[in-house]
Simulated scan of single mutants.
Amino acid sequence: MSQLLFFDSGVGGLSIWQQVHQALPGVEAVYAMDDAAFPYGELSESVLVERVLAVFDAVTQRHDISLAVVACNTASTLVLPHLRQRFSFPVVGVVPAIKPAARLTRNGVIGLLATPGTVNRPYTHQLEADFAAGKQVLRLGSSELVTMAEAKLRGQELDIDRLADILAPWLQAPKPDTVVLGCTHFPLVKEELAKVLGSDVTLVDSGEAIARRVRSLLPAGAGNKKGGLSHLYHTASSPKGLELLRAWLQESALPEYLPLYSSS
């Protein structure tokens, strides 16, 4: 039976998986993370593309994949053409939700919170030109926040003061009233972000849009009664927090952990 594949450099893509699982509870999926190279926002383009292709090659040798989601904004801005050239199944990317943010903003000031790589890539600038013309887009890139989100998942308390330091540019005028969570890790710390930015700031991510896109690409009646995640793959030799990850997912079993690719 065919399965979906969700891919990220770490656990952030699980925020996308959860949205898709809510929309399609009977569809079975595989999750693969290249945590040996985490965080992706600091990799060169050539290295990133090489690693993503290697992980996809390894997973597709083990599973019949019907559709894949690159649940990582950084990877999506670079690797989608390479994946679509190599594989025949549909590949859905996650890009910063600038289009819906432009519709939601009341004061015309949008904050884009992402990794440094995503913030600075031409693809992101084109999204702004296409969908946020006439709006002021304030960009803030942080790899540290990605690490903080992973630490929270492992049970560590997030440092609110440090988070306020990261977000300091947006705590004074011009203050965005709508913030795009341009990294799939950031919904994991949505509560803390709201605490620092204030309840009047709308936080926007791509999860619901991706779920709708996946549903539209799958044939009617796709899935089975079981659904859920069948496998979690990782590339780090000593992945952290798998038991906490299992509890957070509320899955009864993630039966197999296999290293897929590691840098030389």
Score class of each variant (00 low, 15 high):
A102H: 02
Q3T: 14
Q126L: 15
S216P: 07
L218C: 02
T147G: 15
D161F: 10
W17E: 05
Y40A: 03
K195R: 11
G207V: 00
V69G: 08
V196F: 15
L145S: 13
P39T: 05
S9H: 05
S46E: 12
I65N: 02
V119L: 04
G221I: 07
F89P: 15
K135R: 15
A75N: 07
S76V: 09
T178V: 02
L153A: 12
D8G: 12
P116W: 08
F7D: 07
P187V: 02
H234W: 01
D34Q: 00
Y123R: 08
A209K: 04
L145C: 09
L104K: 15
T115R: 02
L242A: 00
K175M: 14
A220F: 08
E42W: 04
T124Y: 03
A114I: 04
L232M: 06
V69S: 11
V204K: 07
G26M: 06
H231K: 12
M1Q: 03
H63I: 05
A37T: 14
F56K: 03
V189Q: 03
H21R: 13
N120A: 13
G26N: 07
L245H: 06
V95E: 15
A102I: 09
I16G: 08
I160L: 15
E50T: 08
R139N: 15
R86P: 04
S46V: 12
P81G: 11
R121C: 05
L203K: 05
A164I: 04
P176R: 11
F56Y: 10
P100L: 02
P239G: 05
F186Y: 08
V180M: 07
V52T: 04
F38I: 12
Y31C: 09
P90W: 03
N120P: 00
V59Q: 09
R103I: 10
E50M: 11
Q85R: 15
P25R: 07
Q61H: 14
G223Q: 02
I160E: 11
L171G: 01
C72W: 02
L188N: 08
V52A: 02
W170Y: 09
R106H: 14
E45K: 00
K195G: 03
L153C: 14
D200H: 14
S66D: 10
Q22C: 07
S206A: 12
G12A: 11
P219M: 15
K175V: 08
V55D: 13
S76R: 05
A151Y: 07
Y31S: 06
R139H: 14
T60P: 01
